[in-house]
Every structure is written in C-alpha cells, then in structure tokens.
C-alpha cells in the first residue's frame, strides 16, 4: 500500500468527483430557484401561500437527508413511477437524487433569503409602498436586490454543505465520491493514500468555494 494505490486509482477517483461536482452544481441551481420561489411564498400577502411555504420548509428541514433521498429513490422512483430516463439507469438515479438534494437544500436557501429580507431597513420598504409600488414591485426593485447581497455569505455555506451532502446520494446508488471510496476500501482495505485523495478532493471543492463567496459577500455588501 504505497502511494501507488492513489496513483492507480487516480482515474476512477477523478471520475467519481466529476459525479460529485455535477450533483452539486445541478442541485445548487435548482435549489436556488426553488428556494427563491418558496421564500417569496413565505413573505407574500396571501396567507395560503405563506402556509404552504411554511409547511414545505418545516417538513424538509426536519427530515434527515438520508430519508429524503430514500423517498426519492423508493417513493418517487419505484412507487410513483417517476422516471427521468428509461434506458440509462445512472441518469435516472442522478435526476432522482437531484430532486431530493434540491428540495432539501431549497428549504435552507429559503430560510437564508428570508433572513436576508429582514436585513432590509423597514423605512425603505415603507417608502417604496408609500410611492405606490405593489408587493411584486417592492420585492423586485427594493427588497430582493438588497436581500440577495446580504445572503451571499450564508448561501456560500449552503453551497459548501450541499457539496458535502452529495455523499449521502450513496443511498440512491449513483456513483459519486463516497461510493467510490467505499468501493475502493472494500476492495483493497483502507489506505491512507486513498482517503487522503478523497479528503483533498473535497477540500479542493469546498475551501475555494468558501473563499469566493466570502469575497463576493464583502465586495457586494450593502453599506449602511
């Protein structure tokens, strides 16, 4: 078990990390969109929309991700017959995993955005309303531009958490980094080199992401 193990397996490790990146990026985009919609629902003037948004967030935020993903694989896939691809099993599992990861993460995105809305000073919103802007106009022109800047840093943490959470996709059966590491460990036993390869992979993904978001947050901060 020299450094050879890492070099031997370098190719498969890289491939598995490509799976991790694809999951993180795709789920990231979907959860941002979904999170924005749910956040708008939760601050909207219509009580029914607020209630629906609250229910969504409460359920998803309090269920373990493992269970959410199992529901996607078994509930959506096997029982409700939701399929994204009939021919390509890997594609099917990928999109079922994306549904689970996006729904779960969007609940956290929604809460971050809502916290961002709270940072917008009351006076500005009152001013916007007093010049006759509607809810949608107030949200689009006054609240969201400021709220989005305020939540860049929390969104960065969510992106990092999401990247790490892609490992839980293990239960759906899609090949990403954690499954590849388990396969390698099961094959030739644990090796420090192989683990170090995976650890490094995650650090390469998460630490720069944190730095970029931190920088963006500071540059775009609304000075008050």
């Amino acid at each position: 078990m020299g450094t050879d193990t890492l070099i031997d397996h370098f190719g498969v490790i890289l491939v598995s990390f490509w799976g991790t990146v694809r999951l993180a990026v795709t789920a990231g985009l979907w959860s941002a969109a979904l999170g924005l919609v749910v956040a708008l629902m939760r601050v909207s003037p219509v009580p029914a929309l607020r209630a629906a948004g609250t229910l969504y967030v409460t359920v998803l935020r309090n269920t373990p991700l493992t269970l959410v993903l199992l529901f996607c694989g078994l509930g959506l896939g096997a029982t409700l017959d939701v399929h994204f691809s009939r021919d390509d099993l890997s594609m099917d599992n990928f999109w079922l995993a994306i549904v689970g990861l996006s729904c779960y993460t969007s609940a956290f995105v929604c809460e971050a955005l809502r916290a961002g809305v709270n940072t917008v000073p009351r006076g500005e919103i009152e001013a916007a309303r007093s010049i006759g802007l509607t809810f949608t106009q107030t949200a689009r022109l006054v609240v969201l531009p400021q709220a989005l800047r305020a939540v860049i840093a929390p969104l960065g943490s969510i992106v990092i958490a999401l990247t790490k959470n892609t490992t839980v996709v293990y239960v759906v059966g899609y090949l990403e980094a954690s499954r590849q590491m388990k396969l390698l460990f099961d094959e030739d036993g644990a090796s420090v080199q192989v683990f170090a390869g995976f650890a490094l992979g995650f650090m390469v993904l998460t630490i720069p992401a944190g730095l970029v978001f931190g920088r963006l947050a500071r540059r775009l901060a609304v000075s008050r």
């Binding site: 790490k164 959470n165 490992t167 839980v168 650890a199 995650f202 630490i207």
Partner: peptide, 11 residues
C-alpha cells in the same frame, strides 16, 4: 469541517 461526514464514518 471540509470532509463530508459519511466519508469520515467510512474512514
């Protein structure tokens, strides 16, 4: 903090 929990448990 940078390593996913599942990877840590496998390790």
């Amino acid at each position: 903090r940078a390593i996913p929990l599942l990877i840590m448990i496998f390790l």
